[in-house]
C-alpha cells in the first residue's frame, strides 16, 4: 500500500464540501483510474494526495505513515508523489522546455551537473530532446503535455498523478500519451489518473474508483465495475462501448464467455470462431434433430 486515505474530508473557503469522507487504497505499481463527471471531487482528492491541500478531517497515509504538513515532510511527499495538472499552461511556467524540466530537480537541491544529467535523461526517455531549447508556446497540445509529464518525471517520483491526461488531445496525441503512461508504469511508477472517458478507464486501468459529489460510490476491477449498470447510472456515465456490445453479443450467445474484451481486436477475438456456421433453423427444431443444410 503506497497511498491510503482514511475518512478524508475537505471543504473550500466558500463552504462547498468537495470531499465527504474518502477511503482509498493505492497499491504500489498499479494503474488506478478515478472516474466521475466534472466537479465530483477528483482534482481536490489529487491535491490532498500530495499535500498541496490539507484535509479538514481524516488522514492520508504514505507508505503506511500518516502525512505531516511541516515543510520538510511536504518536500519528501511532493518529491515522491508528482502531479501533472490538466491544463499544461498552468504547469509549464519556464521560458524553455529545458528550464521547465530542470525546475523540480533544481529545487530538490541537486547540483548543476546532476540536474543537467537528469534533464537530459528525462528528455530522451520521453522523446522530447528535440524541443529542449524551444519556448512552450511553440509546442502543440500533445507536446506540451509531454513536457508537463517530463517536468514531473525528472523528479523521479514513486507515484504519478495525472488529472485528465488526455483532455483536449486529438487521437494521435492521445495515443502517444497513453503509450507513455504505460511505459512509465512498466518502469514501476504507480500511476493514478482521473478521467471522464469511460473507454480510457475501462481499457487502461487495473483498478477503478467511481466518484460522485465528493464520495466514492464504487470501486473494483474495470470489468466488474463497468458492468454494474446501477453504478454507471448513479455516476451519470455510460458503459464503455466495447463492453456494451460484448454484453449484447454474449446475450445472443455469439461470443465465447471467458475474458471481458478491452479493445475492438479483443472483442473480435471473443467472437465464436468462423468455422461455426450459421444456419436457419425453424423454432420447433429440437436438439438431436437432423437439419438439412
Amino acid at each position: 500500500m503506497i497511498l491510503e486515505t482514511k475518512g478524508l474530508k475537505y471543504s473550500y473557503h466558500d463552504g462547498t464540501q468537495a470531499l465527504k469522507g474518502i477511503d482509498v487504497k493505492i497499491k504500489k505499481g498499479k494503474k488506478i483510474a478515478f472516474v466521475g463527471k466534472n466537479g465530483s471531487g477528483k482534482s481536490t482528492l489529487f491535491m490532498l494526495l500530495n499535500g498541496t491541500l490539507k484535509p479538514k478531517e481524516g488522514t492520508v497515509h504514505f507508505h503506511g505513515k500518516p502525512m505531516e504538513y511541516d515543510s520538510k515532510s511536504l518536500r519528501e511527499i511532493r518529491k515522491s508523489v508528482g502531479i501533472v495538472f490538466q491544463n499544461s499552461d498552468d504547469q509549464i511556467f519556464a521560458p524553455t522546455v529545458y528550464q521547465d524540466v530542470g525546475f523540480g530537480p533544481t529545487n530538490l537541491g541537486h547540483s548543476k551537473e546532476e540536474v543537467d544529467e537528469l534533464v537530459e535523461k528525462t528528455l530522451e526517455y520521453i522523446g522530447i530532446t528535440e524541443f529542449r531549447n524551444k519556448p512552450p508556446h511553440h509546442l502543440s497540445g500533445g507536446q506540451k503535455k509531454r513536457v508537463a509529464i517530463a517536468g514531473v518525471c525528472s523528479m523521479e517520483p514513486e507515484v504519478m498523478i495525472l488529472d485528465e491526461p488526455l483532455a483536449n488531445l486529438d487521437p494521435v496525441g492521445a495515443d502517444e500519451i497513453l503509450d507513455l503512461l504505460n511505459e512509465l508504469n512498466q518502469n514501476n511508477t504507480t500511476m493514478i489518473i482521473s478521467t471522464h472517458d469511460v473507454e480510457l478507464a475501462y481499457s487502461w486501468a487495473d483498478y477503478v474508483y467511481f466518484m460522485n459529489e465528493g464520495n466514492i460510490i464504487g470501486e473494483g476491477a474495470p470489468e466488474d465495475v463497468f458492468k454494474d449498470m446501477e453504478l454507471l447510472k448513479k455516476s451519470n456515465l455510460r458503459q464503455p462501448r466495447t463492453l456494451e456490445i460484448y454484453n449484447e453479443l454474449e446475450r445472443r450467445n455469439l461470443a465465447t464467455r471467458n475474458k471481458f474484451p478491452k479493445s475492438v481486436p479483443e472483442l473480435v477475438h471473443s467472437l465464436k470462431p468462423p468455422e461455426l456456421m450459421w444456419i436457419e433453423v425453424s423454432p420447433d427444431v429440437k436438439e438431436g434433430d437432423v437439419v438439412n443444410l
Binding site: M47, N50, T52, R75, R78, K79, G82, I83, F85, N87, D89, D90, Q91, F93, A94, T96, Y98, Q99, G102, F103, G104, P105, T106, N107, L108, V115, N133, G151, V152, M155
Partner: peptide
C-alpha cells in the same frame, strides 16, 4: 487565477525559490 494556479503547480514540484538557468 493563473497566478494562483502557477503557484500551486510550482509548490507541487517543491518550489523553494530556485529557477534553473540555461
Amino acid at each position: 487565477e493563473q497566478g494562483e494556479k502557477i503557484f500551486i503547480s510550482m509548490s507541487a514540484r517543491c518550489y523553494d525559490g530556485k529557477l534553473i538557468f540555461f
